[in-house]
Design a protein around this nucleic acid. Sequence first.
RNA 1: CGGGAUGUAGCGCAGCUUGGUAGCGCACUUCGUUCGGGACGAAGGGGCCGCAGGUUCGAAUCCUGUCAUCCCGACCA
Length: 647
Amino acid sequence: MALLEAVGPASLRCCLARRRQPGERWVIASGLPSPQVPMRVSRLMLVTLRDDPAEAEIPSHKLLLRAGYIRRIGSGIYAYLPLLWRVLQKISAIVREELNGAGALETLLPQLQPAELWQRSGRWAGYTAGEGIMFHLEDRQGRALGLGPTHEEVITALAADLLRSYRQLPVNLYQIQTKFRDEIRPRFGLMRGREFIMKDGYSFHADEACLKQSYAAMDGAYRRIFSRCGLRAVAVEADSGAIGGSASQEFMVTAEAGEDLILASADGSYAANQERAVSVPAEVAPLVAGPRAGGAGDPLVTPGQSSIEDLCAAHGFEPGQIVKVLLLLARFEDGVQQPLLISLRGDQQLNEVKLVNAVSARCSAAHGTVLEIGPLTAEAADKEGLGPIHFGFLGPHLADAVLTGARSWQPRFLRLADSTAAGLASFVCGANSLDTHQLGATWGGLCPCPESLDLRAAQPGDRCLHDPSQVLQASRGIEVGHIFQLGRKYSAALDATFTNEAGVDEPLWMGCYGIGVSRLAQAAVEQHHDANGICWPTAIAPYEVIVVIANAADPVQVALAEQLYTDLLGAGVDALLDDRGERAGVKFKDADLLGIPWRVVVGRGAADGEVELVQRAGSRRQDLTAAQLLPQLLPQLEAECRGLVPA
RNA sequence: CGGGAUGUAGCGCAGCUUGGUAGCGCACUUCGUUCGGGACGAAGGGGCCGCAGGUUCGAAUCCUGUCAUCCCGACCA
């Protein structure tokens, strides 16, 4: 501490003292026991790799493996090594701080969950059968159990048990815990694991207005969390998927390697996941000569022209003047297989998420969850015992009669049309016979227009609904958070009710809120790295400073480094000492690879009391006297941890 | 599950076409010289060539099956 005495200014001492205050915000944010525990690289079980492991594809996955943060144990199953565990702890600490500040309560729920709870919510079959993602097992009594992929069922059962009166509401509970999901395809290291760490939270309310308030509070907390973690994240409108409910919003870390496509307006007022995005469709020129022959259209000979491109090339149509028909097959929880006939404008693509939602809305009451929707292929139709279907020449007037004799399918199509197709005054479509189309067909003339709704995928370049002068732009994102207004879906299913002010029982209003903690750590690497390795944002770095002894055989360097290291720890800094006997170059390379935000090199200048300070991101370096180090570094670290200075 | 690829030392790879008992770089151990950006030299240790069958005097190599991993699609924090 002699060095500190020497540095002088009262403001600095104040700052140092604050760093050690147990109750201080950013000491808590370190998430680690204080005072800081010494750690030397020689004792860290650090194994860094020079070559990229063949199994890794994207930069963050390669770097986490190379720098010794993770090891693969099985497909989608990773060991979090000590360095990564510190990162995860720091992220968790920030999450806790923001959520506690927003009035949420931390709890811990069981991972082993009885099937019965899931059967009551109606999700057991959907989550375990077919492409379901829940690992499940039987105990010695033959009772079915699942490993929790999420906790709506458990928390709602608890709420049903504990929440009785509007006087107890609202409440907001969260946990940080390992989740299990039997992903169809685990990918990219921690990005999509079968076992991963998630913060999940659930809120309960007496009415929808209160739910919306908590949802807004969580929105704010999430924005602060990602910002404090040093991430550039955007909030986008999202599909609610299997979780259900009404409004939902995803938080995306923008990165090339992201699995999701984000569509956003340049003015920033609209952003959505492509699964959800809406837009103004492109205008299409009317078909020359308009409707024909009472609206059924004229036959047009189109030998071998089974694609939109062929048709346009041969006859000079625009794709948007054609109605294309997709035959699909939906499989439901109760085993029913429902053929679908979807009409789309030729220049549009089907959005499968919108389709699944539309089909669920129409059929789930009768048949349960949609397990899958896939193409209705010629082979499948053949197996089913149907007559020939002229794929490539289909029109929306294809009669239900083609389904007669089906062995296991429903005998009638569910017919839906995207509104762009429904809006065409006259169009070209298949004639349902080989090598023939209809030219100048109209709805009503050809066949009644099917139920019309939004089924098309919005595309980059489409005009925006909120302001048609704006255009949707594409970027890629990693989903690190998702918040939902669940409404009363689970509370009604699990009979979680409370007594309202009027003395009447009604289902609780619910919200739910998730953050992928382990995914967030990797997303941070994806966003913060360079050719030499990781550049952690200071707030979530495993250590804030690494002290490197350039030549561990030089007792002068060792003594000064040990002194500075002790001083840093004493000042509450998370510091690491590289005491290895390696050559200096090796230690510099490793320090870059590990991505510790600040490096203090004790080397040739040690005899004169001089050290070098290097910032990892940007590699800015400066020479300092040992006495200048702490006064310089401490305010900087504090600012970075508070997110005041971009790392 | 459909499509594609790969399994040889801890990591990255060669060898396979044309069968003859396994090799390179990095890492690891020891010694010496080096010592501020992944040093050099010398000497070592480490492999049921994914697994199981088959063909053959003989299989990393040819054949069959199987398992695992990775990439593209459905799933999602």
